[in-house]
Amino acid sequence: MSNALRTAALLALTLGASGPASAWDATLAAGVTRESTEVLRLALQQDFQRSWWQSSSGRLTGYWDAGYTYWFGDKSASNHSLSFAPVFVYEFAGERVRPYVEAGIGVALFESTEHESHDLGSSFQFEDRLGFGLRFAGQEIGVRAIHYSNAGIKQPNDGAETYTLHYRTAF
């Protein structure tokens, strides 16, 4: 995973050196699957520009996420996927650092239905995610788990999971 982490760190520093905040953010994530396939993910986000249930302890908000993931490893040939998801975020109150938790369900398209020793059954997959992290100074760092499954639309439906560290910044 050292090559993936070096590439992710270099891209994160490049993204972090960009100009003033805007309506779009970029996220770079690096991680692994249960069977040691490495993943690199580059995504764009746009905030909902709304929040609900604001209180002194935090608020519910969210963003649209469109991503590209490159899957590579010793046990499988490379794979590519595109995904799109609405993601809901509960952001806890804080002056400089705001912890958050997130959850979302979206869709993904895989180039190949073969992944490690699994058969995804179809190129179309649902993408379920859970994550947590910290927001500070227009940036974010966090941990995320994403599960892919076709929900039994086509058999087999072996599914796949990724576990990543991510960095998000405005550009």
Score class of each variant (00 low, 15 high):
Ile146Phe: 00
Asp128His: 09
Leu134Cys: 09
Glu102Arg: 15
Glu140Cys: 08
Phe110Gln: 00
Gly67Phe: 00
Phe92Arg: 13
Val87Cys: 05
Gly152Ile: 12
Ile153Asn: 06
Tyr163Ser: 11
Gly159Gln: 08
Gly67Lys: 03
Leu109Pro: 01
Tyr100Val: 07
Phe124His: 11
Val107Ile: 13
Gly94Leu: 07
Lys154Tyr: 06
Pro99Leu: 06
Ser78His: 15
Ala93Leu: 10
Ser149Thr: 15
Ile105Phe: 07
Ala145Asp: 11
Ser122Thr: 15
Gly94Arg: 12
Leu165Ile: 11
Ser149Met: 04
Pro99Phe: 05
Phe72Ser: 13
Ile146Ala: 12
Ile105Met: 08
Leu120Ser: 08
Phe110Lys: 07
Gly121Tyr: 03
His118Leu: 06
Ala137Met: 07
Phe72Glu: 08
Phe124Ile: 14
Glu127Tyr: 03
Glu161His: 09
Pro156Tyr: 05
Tyr148Cys: 03
Ser112Tyr: 07
Glu161Trp: 12
Thr164Ala: 11
Glu91Cys: 06
Glu114Leu: 14
Tyr148Ser: 02
Ala85Met: 02
Ala151Asp: 03
Leu130His: 10
Glu95Arg: 15
Phe88Leu: 13
Glu161Ser: 10
Gly106Lys: 06
Gly104Phe: 00
Thr162Tyr: 00
Ser83Ile: 10
Ala145Gly: 09
Ala108Met: 08
Ser122Ile: 11
Pro86Thr: 09
Val89Tyr: 00
Pro86Gln: 03
Tyr163Pro: 01
Gly133Ile: 00
Phe124Met: 09
Gln125Thr: 14
Arg96Asn: 04
Gly133His: 00
His80Asn: 13
Arg96Met: 03
Asp119Ser: 13
Tyr70Gly: 08
Gly142His: 01
